[in-house]
Simulated assay, not measured.
Amino acid sequence: MKLTVQELYWKMRQNMGPSGWWPADSKEEIIIGAILIQNTNWRNADRARLLFKKQTDFKPSLILTMTTEELQNAVRPAGFFHNKSKAIYNIFSWLNKYNFDYSAIKNIFGADLRHHLLQLHGVGEETADVLLTYVFEVPTFISDKYARTLFTLLGIQNLTDYRSLAKLYQLNNDFTVEMAKDFHGLIDEFGKVYFHPLTKFNESFLAHDELLLK
């Protein structure tokens, strides 16, 4: 069956139910999680997340008073602790300038918000899009590895890196921010089940579908 991206979303939602993503109790926890998950798996990132929760409960005032050593030790289970600890400190310092008022930041920077996020240490394209969607409530398609793998299996070619899919497809106005959050979660949860190994995709409810990027 040929599916538009929105039809793909609804088919995944119907078969899988709501994803509940991003699982977190605060936007600060989402920010920490988005940095910790870079270049590692959920298990390692979650070990570091639990250390942050224990030490700071994700309160910005406590995170900003952590020493470099304390930050690095908390990040260490997620790997790349030098870069990730610096990224967390820099992002929280930037947000602190605006009193962590995410709505105000969104209004101040408008369409340039993604560009400003990308100027922050440790924020690449994927992390910027995660923050836009889950923190600043800007519905954005997150072209991560799971999304590229799924779109490739559904017939879209030459998805070599993050930008290759991001240039090819962006969410249209029919996607609300809640739908955008859920879609990313569904894709990643689908990938965890059907992409290891890739041959498992043939057992999935999408095995005979083809995607139309319209």
Rank of each mutant, 00 (worst) to 15 (best):
V135R: 02
Y146F: 13
A166Q: 15
T160N: 13
T127S: 09
Y102L: 09
D129I: 07
K167E: 15
N172G: 11
R114T: 10
L171N: 01
Q157W: 03
G124L: 07
N107A: 12
L168Q: 13
G122N: 04
L168D: 01
N172Y: 01
R163C: 10
K167W: 07
N158E: 14
T140N: 07
G110Q: 08
R148I: 04
V138S: 09
G110P: 06
N107I: 07
A166N: 14
T133K: 08
F151A: 07
D161Q: 02
D101M: 06
K167F: 11
Y102A: 09
A128I: 00
I105K: 06
T149W: 03
I142N: 01
K167V: 11
E125Q: 13
G110Y: 07
F136E: 01
K167Y: 12
N173F: 11
K167A: 13
L165Q: 07
T140H: 06
Y102R: 11
L118N: 04
V130E: 04
H115R: 14
I156R: 00
E137P: 00
K106N: 11
I142H: 06
R148K: 09
L153C: 08
H116P: 00
L118E: 11
N173C: 10
L113I: 10
E137D: 15
L159I: 05
D174H: 14
D112G: 04
K145T: 15
L150P: 02
F109Y: 15
L150G: 05
R148N: 01
A147R: 07
N158C: 00
Y146R: 09
T133Y: 09
L153P: 00
R148P: 00
T127I: 05
L154V: 08
T152Y: 09
L154Y: 07
H116I: 05
Y162W: 08
Q119H: 12
F136P: 02
N173A: 13
F109H: 12
F100R: 03
N158Y: 07
L113A: 07
I142W: 02
L159T: 05
Q170T: 15
A147V: 09
S164G: 08
Y102M: 10
K106V: 02
D144E: 15
D101Y: 04
S164F: 06
V135G: 04
L118W: 02
A147Y: 06
D161T: 00
L131A: 10
I142C: 09
F136H: 02
F109G: 05
L118Q: 10
K167T: 14
D101H: 10
